[in-house]
């Protein structure tokens, strides 16, 4: 008889628990605030940077082949379309770097987890400051006379 009881418990534990929908959603379901969005952005920017890095190592390797081969490829980086691509790259790297520092603070700073939400908005603020400094300069380089 005890065997049968234990067996029943194992079977029922496999079945998905029935969750009744709450009357009000506030504070009951996970709705993804700063913590989730920073995680999502960290993943997306990380993947984007990774695939650029793979290409960037290959294009830089052309310096070993010949000056002509390297110049032919690097000149495509100076076109307006690629210039916008470089802007997007810096946008991605800027967030990934600043949010990475936030992750380190969450992990190693005694009150890091407590202030993770505030630190997310500090990351966003510093990110904007960084881009205000970079984007006009980059646009001057790629769209301006040179």
């Amino acid at each position: 008889m005890p065997d049968k009881t234990a067996g029943t418990l194992a079977t029922t534990s496999r079945r998905a628990p029935v969750i009744k929908p709450p009357k009000r959603l506030v504070g009951t379901v996970y709705r993804g605030r700063e913590g989730m969005w920073s995680w999502v952005l960290h993943r997306i920017t990380g993947v984007a940077i990774y695939f650029f890095l793979l290409v960037h190592i290959l294009d830089t390797s052309l310096v070993r082949l010949s000056p002509e081969a390297y110049n032919a490829v690097i000149n495509t980086y100076k076109t307006p379309i690629m210039g916008l691509g470089e802007t997007a790259l810096v946008v991605a790297i800027g967030f990934h770097a600043l949010n990475g520092l936030r992750i380190i603070l969450i992990d190693f700073w005694s009150v890091g987890a407590k202030y993770q939400r505030l630190m997310f908005w500090i990351v966003i603020a510093l990110w904007i400051v960084l881009l205000v400094g970079f984007v006009p300069r980059q646009f001057m380089h790629i769209f301006g006379a040179h």
Partner: peptide
């Protein structure tokens, strides 16, 4: 590595994209 990369990558980006003529200055030479 992330901590070191913040310095290495921002330095790399500054020298190659921001200073002087930016991306236009990059060639074999």
């Amino acid at each position: 590595s992330g901590l070191v990369l913040v310095i290495l990558i921002f330095g790399h980006l500054f020298v190659n994209l921001v200073s002087g003529k930016g991306v236009n200055a990059i060639d074999f030479a």
